[in-house]
Design a protein around this nucleic acid. Structure first.
Lengths: 247, 247
DNA sequence: CGCTGGCTTGATTCTATTCAATTTTCGTGG
DNA sequence: CCACGAAAATTGAATAGAATCAAGCCAGCG
């Protein structure tokens, strides 16, 4: 496990790449934006919160009083449909932020996929800090910018017609996230269920299953466990997902 | 035309609603964030640029040296696929910003749908201003936050299965945008072509056409010109789009 | 060791895509 | 202002692909 330990210093950590600069490896760990003093400063206004696997963290429509910064674990941000179906807008990992709101209310529900440890940043206090500290705030601009790109990429994925194209793009996405987090690239770990993958890529459970099978049959990936995928032909995968291979 | 004239004072204007506060009508015009002094300040670093209908403004992959703020007109932000198809990530209107980039390069191509007047804000200068002025920067945070929500809503739209559901959500979106801009609500003007609507909602031209026909046949909308839609049954439309009617 | 929930697989149905033919609209130049 | 040509949009028929439903399978966990 060749992961830089961002948790050596306590306090929130935000992963993002400056949209205006070519990325340069930083001593703070991969794409870790905040300097240590900012992190300890944010730590003074943050509370550590823990959630069990499957536990609900935010509910759509409820008053939004905090923004969360993940330390450990994975969460899904989703909106539930009237028929009981869920549309997942993002899977979020350590150093991600969540808690998007509109007019003071959360626009997405958020649930823990694994056990989760996070910082809760009360927005009233955070707001004051942002308005007082342009440098700190700039990190939020960069982070939001990043998140916007990801959401646009998600939309691009959803616009695809063929199931295995969507899955290929999804796998590329996960691969990039995990290699950015410092893990080996060809081996992907998927913390979420097949159903959740379907809710993210806009496919039924059956179509996800068939899509994976097709990718395996074509020799592009191999699947040891259901949650572990190995990329056999990165080029083929990239080619299938080539609409906008997104970095 | 009951539109407040935001262009009385010169300079960039940004439309967005603070995600953490219930919206309150402002004297600066609907959801206009920037105070006049900020606008004139930004005006000093901005250049006015004009584009003809159909003209390309940004190209995906080209160095990103400016962010644009629309004064008049409509643009589409898109990425072109290998087969010549386009995926449109957003239609942008006056007071919107565009020019999303990653590592110094635009991630979307942008083309003028109508004649367009815009401010070009060079990012190097803008960056300095943001880092020096937390209040100004805060507006960008709010704006990006807004844009993120819109992108998530777009993803929700694309995840829908039935064509007329997508179109209903699309029409709701346009209706909200236009009523936010101060126009009458029940009459929608669509500056874009059917093909472009299809590229936005993820449908073929034929499906868009059939979808509109279905909405008309159900008596939910009526279409005077191809670019003018009248909502006859707002409740029915909202119901069809009810997954996440988005405000 | 068996149970439970997640996953796979198959058959059918439904919807959108595709392709082609036709009509409408729009911009241009007379 | 009208007429023409080109581009956009509609419509129809055939096809392809995913959704749905139901049945069986596998894995993790007590």
């Amino acid at each position: 496990m060749a992961k830089t330990d961002v948790n050596r210093v306590g306090g929130p950590a935000i992963r993002a790449t400056d949209p205006w600069l070519a990325s340069a490896p930083s001593a703070r760990g991969p794409n870790q934006l905040l300097a240590d003093d900012k992190r300890t400063q944010l730590a003074t206004i943050a509370t550590i919160v823990r959630f069990k696997k499957g536990e609900q963290i935010c509910a759509r429509g409820k008053p939004a009083d905090a923004i969360y910064n993940i330390v450990h674990g994975t969460v899904k941000s989703y909106v539930a449909g009237p028929d009981g179906g869920e549309h997942i807008s993002a899977f979020l990992y350590p150093q991600d932020l969540f808690g998007v709101s509109e007019e003071g209310r959360y626009t997405n529900s958020v649930k823990a996929i694994t056990r989760v440890v996070a910082y809760a940043l009360p927005i009233s206090v955070l707001r004051r800090h942002l308005l007082a500290d342009a440098e700190l705030e700039f990190h939020f601009v960069v982070r939001l910018w990043d998140e916007l790109r990801q959401a646009q990429h998600h939309a691009l994925l959803l616009a695809q017609r063929r199931a295995f194209t969507k899955l290929a793009m999804f796998l590329m996405l996960q691969k990039n996230l995990q290699s950015a987090a410092g893990y080996a690239a060809e081996q992907i770990f998927l913390p979420m269920s097949r159903t959740e993958i379907g809710d993210y890529v806009g496919l039924s459970l059956g179509a996800v299953s068939r899509g994976f099978r097709e990718l395996v049959e074509r020799g592009i990936i191999s699947s040891t466990t259901r949650r572990h995928v190995k990329i056999l032909e990165p080029n083929a995968l990239r080619h299938v997902a080539n609409w906008a291979a997104g970095s």
